[in-house]
Design a binder for these strands. Structure first.
Lengths: 103, 103
DNA sequence: CGGGATCCCCGACGATACTG
DNA sequence: CAGTATCGTCGGGGATCCCG
């Protein structure tokens, strides 16, 4: 699924999350700081997300589009599911190596 | 999100999908054929999914666990959303590179 | 401050040969 | 038929520099 290819990328969800809790536009640097990443990756994600019309640029920074918000709403149940699942999952370590920060 | 790290991997959803439509256990080779992949990748995914308890092995092959089914149920809305979104997404990607400003 | 350009590294993937 | 081992390739991601 193309969507997962996008969401699965390194900072995508983090960015959406930061934009979501910010509640308003965030500047490039602000996002970079909030998401703790480097310009190149951030720039890539921003391009992809903007192209996908999940976020918008303008009015003082980046923010979720209407579509982005609706996406977030759908992702939420997934997030909840993942939480319960995570406890089980962690019990038997040996997961894919790519997992760093977020739950 | 760790879950997306798993789902985003190359054949994961495809495997879940094949198992879901099969409705019963599938053998290693059957899966390999259905998902059109090679043994090494298939094996990796199978390990990961089994470890995550999303699929089970036994009784003549691999099949979705209860958890796997519940996951699929949650993924479905996402899939639906992705469908609508996809049309927009593609339209955008199809734009001439020169005038790439969003419409 | 925004964000494109560059360099390097490492892990994921693909193909295939091989064992039980 | 089930699954593992090996090897080369490719692309994403981290860091950094720097111009507009």
């Amino acid at each position: 699924m193309v969507l997962l290819d996008l969401l699965g990328r390194r900072m995508t969800l983090r960015i959406l999350w930061e934009l979501s809790i910010a509640g308003g536009p965030l500047t490039f640097r602000a996002l970079q700081h909030a998401a703790q990443t480097n310009p190149s990756v951030l720039n890539s994600r921003l391009k992809e997300l903007r192209n996908a019309q999940i976020i918008e640029h303008g009015g003082g920074g980046y923010q979720l589009s209407a579509m982005g918000k609706s996406l977030l709403a759908i992702i939420l149940p997934l997030h909840v599911w993942a939480d319960e699942w995570a406890s089980l999952y962690k019990r038997n370590r040996a997961m894919p190596s790519r997992a760093k920060g977020n739950a």
